[in-house]
Design a binder for these strands. Structure first.
Length: 547
RNA sequence: GCGCCCGUAGCUCAGUUGGAUAGAGCAACAGCCUUCUAAGCUGUGGGUCGGUGGUUCGAAUCCACCCGGGCGCACCA
């Protein structure tokens, strides 16, 4: 709705000798300040050390605005220019929502950019817990936001299936198998004690036969390794699928070793003169690129640190042609960012190639009490349990309510409650109520067509609703740019509030203002229903027609 | 000690490329059901935006220092 006005303001800025200057054009909080307001005059005045209000007059003099665009413009406060849009603009906006339907809010601002979003990437050593769930919801939603803004998105999962953690997993499973078969066995130091490995051991004995427990230690552990990996990966994929998350690509650390990419990454860094040898180890000079200390790549015992496969992996992503690689990481890995950034910079990749979106911890609360979690003891709330208890919709909504960098309190009681206190219910209810209007009217929403007659919408709640619908595309744009899906939940809650208020104070079916108002309100309800559904769909949450 | 994140109403949090009187939900209090879902709506009270200085016409937002909380500072991943 504001594109034409923005373009005209930019033209005037250029004409006044400030080509390309940045300014804000947005909907003011206070309705008394018009439909849109700009700080352009204040920005210009600052550059010229002039009086902002006088500059605002010059800007308005230069503006060439079509009468069907802006009805009125005036200077206010310290030098804002407030605009009141012509009625035609609001009807045009409404027409656009109905025309675009499920695509309303989409844009092509990111067209041509290929983005890899890597998330969850949990070690295949046990079930996914709520922290992984938050990462899953966040990564998936960031992917959706980028798709909505025209990017070509690949959702990717990286499996750390090499290294010592997997050895311990294999030994732990082997121990459970032996134990189950009546032998004395103990979980090794640093191994996995969770109950799930007992279940896995039972499955293994069922599928491999009871003789499996009598294999030699070496062969048993070796085969347990492959079996454990396969089982854990299957479980994770099943949990993620039930959570509504699907990956386009699953990459494996072991494959990077097997293909020689890990070795070649080390050679590449060495050939570029970015390494040095000391204390029997090979180091990477990350301090030349902003890290606070140099990092070991190859230990004195000849093995690689985890950094090397990670470097190889990012080289691989770059080689696959992505313009951006967005890694969703747990906040406890934030110290790892500078060295990764340093490495990629040393390799000559553009700085914007690599991004990290951090996910903070989730605290699960029931009855006001925090549920304590400990991975060591194997006691934690799994994603599966959470979804079984509160459902996918509530889980996703709650995970996306706060920005990823903020810690999250997940209140199980609230997520399950069927009251307006529960934000996901509140938002879904708004959609269900709009659907209810059409049931009462005995009309399909799609059958209500035609131009919106603003004269037939006299209630302040009518205009308020329409203007809230208008901002959705900007909210999507900003959320995508900032990689912040919580902006969508915040918007949806605000829209739901507007819908509930409109619903309560006005009447569509049998509108007291007359049949023209009934038709107009049905058109408005149809548009609002579309926007609620689009916002929820973007986050992977259903929009029910009745509750 | 160094680095990153955070500090906004009693609680949980939005708002930060500098803008107009700092918002929402919960909790508290007072109201609203012959009306399309009261699974809802309306109103009231509640703030040194952690602190101090600075930049600016204008600071929750930017800068400096300080205080408090979380996390990270391995030849672990």
């Amino acid at each position: 709705m504001s594109e034409a006005l923005r373009a005209e303001l930019a033209r005037v800025a250029s004409r006044l000798g400030a080509d390309g200057v940045e300014f804000v054009l947005e909907r003011p909080r206070d309705a008394g300040h018009g439909d849109l307001a700009t700080n352009l005059a204040m920005v210009l005045a600052k550059r010229e050390r002039a009086n902002p209000r006088a500059t605002a007059e010059r800007v308005i003099d230069q503006l060439r605005l079509a009468p069907d665009l802006v009805e009125r413009a005036e200077i206010a406060g310290p030098g804002f220019i407030n605009f009141w849009l012509a009625q035609d603009q609001l009807s045009a906006l409404h027409r656009r929502i109905l025309d675009e339907g499920p695509a309303y809010g989409r844009s092509i601002s990111g067209a041509g950019l290929r983005v890899n979003v890597e998330f969850v990437s949990a070690n295949p050593t046990g079930p996914l817990h709520v922290g992984h769930g938050r990462g899953a919801a966040l990564g998936d939603a960031i992917g959706a936001l980028l798709e909505w803004t025209g990017h070509a998105v690949t959702r990717e999962f990286y499996v750390n299936d090499a290294g010592v953690q997997i050895d311990r997993l294999a030994q732990s499973l082997w121990a459970r198998v032996r134990e189950l078969s009546g032998y004395a066995a103990t979980i090794p130091d640093g191994g996995y004690h969770g109950e799930y490995l007992r279940d896995n051991a039972r499955d293994v004995l069922a599928s491999e036969g009871a003789g499996f427990a009598d294999l030699s230690e070496a062969e048993g552990v070796s085969r347990a390794r492959a079996l454990a990996l396969r089982i854990q990966r299957q479980e994770q994929d099943r949990d993620l699928a039930e959570f509504g998350v699907r990956f386009d690509v699953v990459s494996s650390e072991q494959t990077l070793y097997d293909s020689g990419q890990v070795g070649r990454a080390l050679e590449l860094l060495h050939a570029r003169g970015l390494t040095f040898d000391a204390d029997g180890a090979r180091w990477l000079r990350t301090t030349d690129f902003g890290d606070d200390r140099d990092r070991v790549l190859r230990k004195s015992d000849g093995s690689f640190t985890y950094l090397v496969p990670d470097i190889a992996y990012h080289i691989d992503k770059h080689g696959r042609g992505f313009d951006r690689a967005i890694d969703v990481w747990g906040a406890d890995h934030h110290g790892y960012i500078p060295r990764m950034r340093a490495v990629l910079q040393a390799l000559g990749y553009p700085p914007e190639f690599f991004e990290v979106a951090l996910v903070q911890l989730v605290k699960v609360v029931r009855g006001g009490e925090e549920l304590k979690m400990s991975k060591r003891s194997g006691e934690f709330v799994t994603l599966r349990e959470l979804v079984e208890e509160v459902g996918v919709d509530a889980a996703r909504y709650f995970f996306l309510m706060r920005k990823g960098a903020s810690p999250l309190d997940f209140d199980l009681d609230l997520a399950k409650s069927q009251t307006d206190e529960n934000p996901v219910f509140y938002v879904q209810m708004a959609h269900a109520r709009l659907s209810g209007i059409f049931r009462t009217a005995e009309r399909e929403p799609e059958s209500v067509t035609g131009a919106l007659e603003l004269a037939a919408l006299p209630a302040p709640q009518d205009a308020e609703l329409l203007k809230t619908l208008a901002t959705f595309p900007e909210v999507v744009e900003k959320a995508a740019r900032e990689r912040e899906p919580h902006r969508i939940t915040v918007y949806l809650h605000e829209l739901a509030t507007t819908v509930h208020g409109w619903y309560h104070h006005t009447r569509a079916v049998g509108a007291p203002e007359g049949p023209d108002s009934e038709r107009a309100r049905l058109l408005l309800a149809r548009a609002a229903r579309i926007v609620l559904a689009n916002g929820l769909a973007l986050l992977g949450i259903t929009a029910p027609d009745r509750m």
